[in-house]
């Protein structure tokens, strides 16, 4: 296991590229992505793991980046909203008007993109469970549900 005792370089694999960041052992992945790599598509909204706005994919699975240290991401594939291009989820969010201010949207897109990849046949119960962690204050959630169903081809 990679050990980190002091500030130092970390090699991260982000959106298919190898990137080196100089981080503290206590820097969260969220902090490293935004402040060191300028990947500001991933947003910060609570830093307590209660809103899922900062969700990124680790080896294809959604993870709250405020609850993961940058050092823990070493050796894993990190994918952020900037690495998700042309996903059917994005098309569906556009078609269904499933966002307003756009602040929580990257978290939804990333989560739903993983759902699409890992559970292409997801039933309602699975969809609801997967998305129950993401908070949105602008929409009625109904349009987000419609968008996810559309992306799943339903």
């Amino acid at each position: 296991m990679f050990q980190m005792l002091d500030i130092g370089p970390l090699e991260l694999n982000v959106n298919g590229e190898k990137r080196t960041v100089v981080a503290r052992p206590a820097d969260t992945l969220l902090y490293a992505l935004r402040e060191h790599l300028g990947l500001t598509g991933t947003k910060n909204a609570c830093e307590t793991g209660d809103c899922d706005v900062c969700t990124v994919l680790i080896d294809g699975w959604p993870v709250k980046s405020c609850h993961m240290l940058a050092v823990e991401a070493v050796g894993h594939q990190v994918n952020t909203i900037e690495g998700i291009k042309g996903s059917p989820v994005q098309t569906a969010f556009l078609a269904k008007e499933a966002f307003q201010c756009g602040y929580c949207t990257p978290g939804y897109i990333v989560t739903a993109h993983a759902l699409l990849t890992l559970h292409p046949d997801a039933e309602d119960e699975v969809i609801n469970e997967w998305l129950a962690g993401n908070l949105c204050r602008c929409t009625g959630y109904q349009e987000i549900k419609e968008a996810v169903l559309m992306a799943l081809g339903r």
Binding site: T40, Y103, P106
Partner: peptide
């Protein structure tokens, strides 16, 4: 929305996104 594409790609910039 005019800014739709920027919002679904994480490209839109809020005040805190200036690093």
């Amino acid at each position: 929305r005019k800014e739709a594409k920027d919002k679904v790609t994480g490209n839109i910039k809020f005040v805190g996104d200036y690093i």
